[in-house]
Measured scan of single mutants.
Amino acid sequence: KTVEVNGVKYDFDNPEQAREMAERIAKSLGLQVRLEGDTFKIE
């Protein structure tokens, strides 16, 4: 899975870890996480 923030992509081998990281980043920035294919987009 991939986490994308402001056009910057971070790859994770563990999908659960990617989801947790995406949620943590989104919460700290006051944004939403949206799953698009294999990418968690933070917008």
Rank of each mutant, 00 (worst) to 15 (best):
A26F: 05
D13P: 10
D38P: 04
Q17A: 12
K41L: 11
K9E: 05
E36F: 07
Y10K: 03
E20D: 09
Q17M: 12
N6W: 14
F40L: 09
P15E: 13
V33Y: 14
Q32M: 12
G7C: 13
K27S: 10
I42M: 06
V8A: 07
M21A: 12
M21K: 03
T39Y: 05
V33T: 04
I25E: 02
R19A: 07
I42H: 02
G30F: 05
Q17I: 11
L31K: 04
E23K: 08
D13H: 09
K27A: 13
V5N: 02
E43M: 12
P15A: 13
L29V: 03
F40C: 04
G30D: 04
Y10D: 00
A18F: 05
V5T: 02
M21R: 04
R24D: 05
V8H: 09
L29W: 07
A18H: 00
K1S: 12
L31G: 10
P15F: 14
F12R: 02
A26V: 02
K9Q: 08
L35G: 02
D38A: 07
G37E: 05
V33F: 13
K41R: 10
F12Y: 08
R19V: 04
F40A: 01
E23T: 10
V8E: 07
F12A: 03
K41T: 06
D13N: 10
I42N: 01
V3E: 01
Q17S: 10
L29M: 11
D38S: 08
K41N: 03
D13C: 15
K9A: 08
E4K: 06
D11A: 14
L29A: 04
E16W: 12
F40E: 00
F12S: 01
K27T: 10
N6S: 07
V33I: 12
G37D: 07
D38L: 06
R24E: 08
D13A: 12
T2K: 12
Y10G: 00
E43Q: 11
A26T: 01
N6E: 07
A26N: 01
D13V: 09
F40Q: 00
F40G: 01
K41G: 00
T39K: 05
R24Q: 09
Q32K: 14
M21Y: 15
I42T: 03
V5H: 09
K27V: 08
I42S: 01
G37H: 06
D13K: 11
G7K: 04
V3L: 06
L29D: 01
A22D: 00
Q32W: 09
T39Q: 03
A18D: 00
D38V: 05
D11Y: 15
E20A: 13
G30A: 04
L35H: 07
N14P: 04
R24V: 07
A22W: 06
R19M: 07
V3F: 04
G30C: 15
R34D: 03
A26G: 06
K27Y: 11
N6D: 09
A22M: 04
E20L: 13
Q32T: 14
V5C: 15
E4F: 12
D11M: 15
M21W: 15
S28A: 14
F40P: 01
Q17F: 08
R34N: 06
E43N: 09
Q32C: 15
Y10F: 11
K1Y: 15
V8F: 11
D11R: 15
K9F: 09
N6C: 15
T39N: 06
G37T: 02
R34F: 09
P15I: 12
I25G: 00
E20H: 09
N14T: 14
A26S: 06
K41V: 14
S28L: 14
A22N: 00
D11G: 11
N14K: 08
R24Y: 12
F12L: 05
D11E: 14
T39H: 05
A26C: 12
G7L: 03
G37S: 04
Y10R: 04
T2Y: 14
R24P: 00
E43S: 12
Y10Q: 04
N6T: 03
G7S: 04
K1P: 07
R19Q: 07
Q32D: 07
V8S: 06
V3Q: 02
P15H: 12
R34M: 07
V3N: 00
T39R: 04
A22K: 00
V33L: 11
D13G: 08
E43C: 15
D13M: 09
A26W: 04
T39V: 13
G30Q: 06
K1Q: 07
G7W: 03
G37C: 14
Q17W: 08
E23V: 11
E20Y: 13
A18R: 02
T2M: 09
N14F: 08
D11S: 14
E23Y: 15
L31C: 15
E36H: 07
G30V: 02
M21H: 08
F12D: 00
I42R: 00
T2F: 14
M21T: 09
L35Q: 09
G37R: 05
K27D: 07
V3G: 01
E20M: 13
N6F: 15
E43A: 10
E4V: 13
Y10I: 08
E4W: 14
E43W: 13
S28Q: 14
L29I: 03
A26Q: 01
R24A: 11
G37A: 06
F12K: 01
G30N: 07
L29N: 02
P15D: 08
T2G: 05
E16Q: 12
F12V: 05
A22I: 05
E36P: 01
I25S: 02
R34W: 07
I42W: 01
G30S: 05
E16T: 10
R19E: 05
E36Q: 07
N14S: 13
K9R: 14
E23G: 06
E4M: 13
E20F: 11
I42V: 12
Y10A: 03
E23N: 11
Y10E: 02
N14E: 08
E43D: 11
K41S: 04
K41Y: 15
A22H: 00
D13Y: 06
D38Y: 07
E43G: 14
I42A: 02
V8N: 07
V8D: 04
G37L: 05
K27F: 10
L29F: 07
R24N: 08
D38C: 15
D38N: 12
A22G: 02
M21P: 00
V33S: 03
